[in-house]
Nucleic acid binder design. Structure first.
Lengths: 226, 226
DNA sequence: CTAAATTTGTCCGTATGTATT
DNA sequence: AAATACATACGGACAAATTTA
């Protein structure tokens, strides 16, 4: 292990074991360099990385301090793992997940959506229908999904469906979608989107869920062939 | 805007617009410094950040190249935004989301879980009941949630509920939980967990959903007082 | 095949601005 | 108010690795 890695480990160990708590002042860059046999520039790189991750703060003329939200930053690093893993899911898995997640979302939307939310959905539909390119249509399709998710007025649900959108916009799913796209199917999707938004406006949960599941079955059939 | 920020924007724009594709060699550090009026150290800071994010690779003696997986890295950056936003949701919002997400999860678990999944749930329950500290109990409580989510055998659902766990383990929720924890409530939670797993084993969707909602109502009452 | 030129990686010396004493 | 300590920024120099002549 190289000296910079040892410095990394040592600082993280002090933070994790709470020997250095929030607000504690840690040794100066020159002192750390002396202790680990490193030039100041190498110490600075390590500390800058930690600062960028929110573990420490550095104030000119004063020193280097453990950040107040150090434990939040430490677990925040762990929270990025689920997002990375989600990007690797297959189209079949994502459709299965959407088949149970979107009815749940509709439940919340019908309870919480207001006129502004519906106006945003209509605008997304209008933009999608006016789109001249496949990419533009895809963009407004994704925006419609976000508008519906935000209409639940729940931050966690919004995050979940933004994650769905990221997976949809990328990798395997994106390639499949391009291969299965036709003008006729786009027209059918537009019609289904319109009907879904209408059902949401009517606060008709049963109809909205049925339309949603029918749309997903349609997408699955077009993309996966079953 | 700062000159370093302009360099950042320019490189990202070239990457996003596919003017610089995977494997393409981008200008040297000295050339970029000349072009943007920056010292080489500042250029190196920007490039090192991009390198750590997986957008570029640098080889000594040769130059700086666009990474092969640059598209995956770019969308990976976007996917981290929803995860970061999710960490900021309030306990009330998270409970509301769980009230619609967990019944949906149970639907999938009952259709896909196998004996190994149930054994893992039992092990989590046993470890939680044997836990001597509040932290250990919380750890195995979280592991039980992950075991149930993984029993759906759907990567996206696993990611969503790992995200739930991250929020639960942190920030506002964590503080509320510590304040509202008592030995009596822990015993009640253990009983409810046992009953839920039993209902899952019986493939009794209605009972499992009812138990799940009752548990969530219990948690909400203890933590939020209503 | 050899040698020179190019490029990234690392380090140092100095100057500057800022906060503490 | 002055002095000191500190982090930061910059330019230069050298080493290591690769490409080119």
């Amino acid at each position: 292990m190289d000296a910079a890695a040892m410095l990394r480990e040592a600082v993280l160990e002090h933070l994790h074991s709470r020997q250095w708590r929030a607000g504690h002042r840690i040794p100066t860059e020159r002192a750390l360099g002396e202790q680990f046999g490193l030039p100041r520039s190498a110490v600075r790189r390590v500390l800058q990385d930690f600062k960028h991750k929110g573990l420490i703060t550095q104030t000119v003329g004063s020193g280097t301090y453990v950040a107040e939200q150090v434990q939040a930053a430490l677990s925040g690093l762990l929270a990025q793992a689920p997002a990375a893993a989600a990007l690797a899911v297959s189209p079949a898995e994502l459709i299965s997940a959407r088949q149970v997640l979107e009815p749940a979302l509709i439940e919340m939307v019908i309870g919480n959506a207001n006129a502004a939310d519906f106006a945003r959905m209509d605008q997304c539909n209008a933009n999608a229908e006016a789109a001249s390119s496949f990419e533009a249509f895809e963009h407004w399709d994704g925006q419609l999904h976000e508008a519906i998710a935000d209409a639940a007025h729940n931050g966690f649900m919004s995050s979940v469906f933004r994650l769905v959108n990221e997976v949809r916009a990328q990798g395997e799913w994106g390639a499949l979608k391009r291969r299965s796209a036709t003008p006729e199917r786009r027209l059918e999707y537009q019609q289904e989107h319109r009907e879904l938004v209408a059902a949401l406006k009517d606060r008709d949960a049963l109809r909205a869920k049925a339309l949603c599941l029918a749309h997903l079955a349609h997408v699955r059939s077009n993309m996966l062939g079953y």
